[in-house]
């Protein structure tokens, strides 16, 4: 591999990390409140609003149904509105975040639902207000599940970011397609695969480790 290609791979690696990192951050900030809303606004929940709950649920399902490559294109007007451009790394971050948020929210929702209703009842019995219940019961008790869900989300996003080349955002997947596939450069292809395997393994390992630590108490 030429030194230029190695530089290109490094750049692609950083681009992938950057895209996935920023979008994952947005998915956490938006997805956790969304999941809390989905769980607590259902019938009998502490913020019960069943009608709104159903509407939001439909929206979440809608976004989950659209394949990422389609979303990437379909969101172009929205992307321009938010980041002022439709090409480059930032142009990929918007659809990545929009796609990852409902995905992550659904996973977090499952962890929140697994919390023993007795804990909510106990919190109410000791004089917790509803926001206290979210802060002291829902989120801390579901934390291992949330971290596990974040791991799955980030790994999925690394995969999805390979399509970001469609909007000129670069990244590892883009290099693999342009050089490895279209120019028949098997070495580059292999290098990208190895980097992705290592990256995904590292994310998975870190996530599993954090969950183990949390569950050990």
């Amino acid at each position: 591999m030429s030194p230029q290609m190695i530089d290109r791979l490094w750049q692609a690696f950083y681009d992938t990390l950057f895209m996935v990192g920023i979008s994952a951050g947005i998915a956490v900030l938006a997805g956790i409140p969304l999941a809390v809303f989905l769980v607590t606004s259902g019938p009998g929940g502490i913020f019960a609003a069943p009608r709104l709950n159903r509407i939001v649920g439909l929206f979440v399902n809608g976004f989950r149904a659209v394949p990422f490559i389609v979303l990437l294109v379909a969101l172009i007007p929205f992307t321009r509105l938010v980041v002022g451009t439709t090409i480059g790394v930032w142009a990929a971050i918007v659809p990545l975040a929009v796609s990852a948020t409902p995905f992550f929210a659904r996973i977090v929702e499952v962890s929140l639902r697994e919390i023993d209703p007795g804990l909510i009842e106990a919190a109410q019995s000791i004089g917790c207000r509803r926001h206290h219940i979210v802060r002291y019961v829902y989120l801390p008790e579901a934390l291992p599940g949330i971290i596990g869900g974040l791991t799955i989300t980030v790994v999925t996003m690394i995969g999805a970011s390979a399509m970001a080349g469609a909007v000129g955002a670069g990244g590892l997947g883009d290099v693999a397609i342009r050089y490895g596939y279209q120019r028949f450069d098997t070495t580059v292809m292999m290098a990208v695969i190895v980097i992705l395997v290592v990256l995904v393994s590292a994310v998975q390992f870190a996530g599993d480790y954090a969950v183990r630590r949390l569950k050990a108490r």
């Binding site: 023993d116 007795g118 009842e121 000791i126 004089g127 917790c128 206290h132 002291y136 008790e141 108490r217």
Partner: peptide, 30 residues
């Protein structure tokens, strides 16, 4: 509810908090 304590069959303690943090919670939220 702060004037009425309650204990449960399955204890309903928060697993993410230590014993002291569990016991302190009614006071923290107050």
């Amino acid at each position: 509810r702060r004037r009425i304590g309650m204990i449960f069959q399955h204890f309903n303690l928060l697993s993410a908090r230590t014993v002291r943090e569990n016991v302190a919670l009614p006071l923290i939220v107050a």
